[in-house]
Simulated assay, not measured.
Amino acid sequence: MNTLPGDARLPRYQQLRDHMVEQIANNRWRPGEAIPTEAALASEFQMSVGTVRKAVDVLVAEGVLERQQGRGTFIRRPQFQSSLFRFFRFESANGARVVPESRILSIEPLPAPSAVAAALGLAAQAEVIRIVRLRLLGAQPVLAEEIWLARQTFQPLLEVELDRKGPLLYPIYETLCGQVVAYAEETLTAESVDAVQGRLLQLPEGSPVVVIERLARDYAGKPLEWRRSRGHAQHFRYRIDIR
Rank of each mutant, 00 (worst) to 15 (best):
R86E: 13
E66W: 02
A190C: 05
F236G: 01
L59W: 06
A96K: 11
R243H: 08
T51A: 15
F154K: 03
V60W: 03
L215T: 09
V99H: 11
C177S: 07
Q79G: 02
I104V: 15
G50R: 13
P111E: 08
D241W: 05
T175C: 02
E22I: 01
T37I: 02
S106G: 02
D57Y: 03
A190Q: 14
A42Y: 05
A117Y: 04
L176I: 05
V193Q: 05
G178F: 07
L59V: 03
P204T: 06
R135Y: 05
W29H: 13
P78H: 09
R217F: 10
E22F: 06
Q79N: 14
A42N: 05
L136M: 13
A55S: 13
R243W: 01
V21N: 10
G95Q: 04
V60M: 11
D57H: 11
M47L: 15
V21W: 01
A150G: 01
R217S: 12
L203W: 03
A150S: 12
P167H: 09
A220M: 04
R97M: 09
S106A: 15
I35C: 06
L105W: 00
P5L: 11
A40T: 08
R130T: 02
E191W: 00
E66T: 10
S207Q: 08
Q79E: 15
S83E: 14
H232V: 00
G178N: 10
T73A: 08
L84G: 06
P171T: 08
R76T: 09
A182V: 00
P5W: 07
T3C: 03
Q79R: 15
Q46M: 09
P156F: 07
E62S: 08
P36E: 09
A25R: 04
Y170W: 09
D163K: 06
Q152P: 00
H19C: 11
W29L: 03
E185F: 10
N26Y: 03
F236A: 14
V49S: 09
S207T: 09
L201Y: 02
M20D: 01
F45K: 06
R228V: 10
V181S: 06
L16F: 06
A61F: 03
T3M: 12
T3V: 14
E127R: 14
H232M: 02
E44D: 13
G95C: 03
A93M: 02
T175M: 12
E108C: 01
R239P: 00
L137D: 01
L169C: 05
V128L: 04
L200F: 13
F88P: 00
A8W: 04
Q46I: 01
V64A: 13
E213P: 00
T187A: 14
Q125A: 15
L122D: 05
A144T: 01
V160F: 03
L158M: 14
F154Q: 03
L10I: 00
A150C: 03
Y183R: 15
V181M: 08
Q125P: 00
F154V: 01
E159Q: 15
V116H: 06
P113Q: 07
Q140K: 13
R228M: 10
V132W: 02
V52D: 08
A112R: 04
V58Y: 12
L16I: 02
A93L: 08
G95N: 03
W226D: 00
S43T: 12
G32W: 05
G138S: 08
Y13W: 14
G32R: 10
Y173N: 10
Q179F: 01
P223S: 11
